[in-house]
């Protein structure tokens, strides 16, 4: 069993803030690109690359296209690391 989803959430928030270079905003499962100015298509690619590297996983294009909000990313990582 991998880490709990909440531990994962905290870890991925840390990556997210590093990639986006943001400090003082709250990231929830419902956060979307509309809520964070720095979250654009380019930084999104960097975010995916950073998460893939950290957890030694690779997302398929379909998985990436299905990501709508921050919680989707956490769920996807949880699914891949449990597999």
């Amino acid at each position: 069993m991998a880490k709990s989803t909440s531990e994962l959430h905290v870890a991925i928030v840390k990556i997210f803030k590093d990639v986006m270079d943001v400090e003082d905003i709250e990231i929830t499962n419902e956060t979307t690109a509309d809520d964070v100015e720095e979250w654009d298509s380019l930084s999104h690619v960097r975010l995916i690359v950073a998460v893939e590297k950290k957890y030694a996983i690779k997302f398929s294009d379909a998985e990436i296209e299905s990501l709508r909000k921050f919680g989707d990313l956490v769920t996807a990582v949880a699914r891949k690391t449990n597999a």
Binding site: L42, V45, R46, V49, K53, K58, D61, I64
Partner: peptide, 13 residues
Amino acid sequence: RLTYRAKVPFNLT
């Protein structure tokens, strides 16, 4: 993957 996804010409590593 990254090339198809974002037209990045080489591995960002």
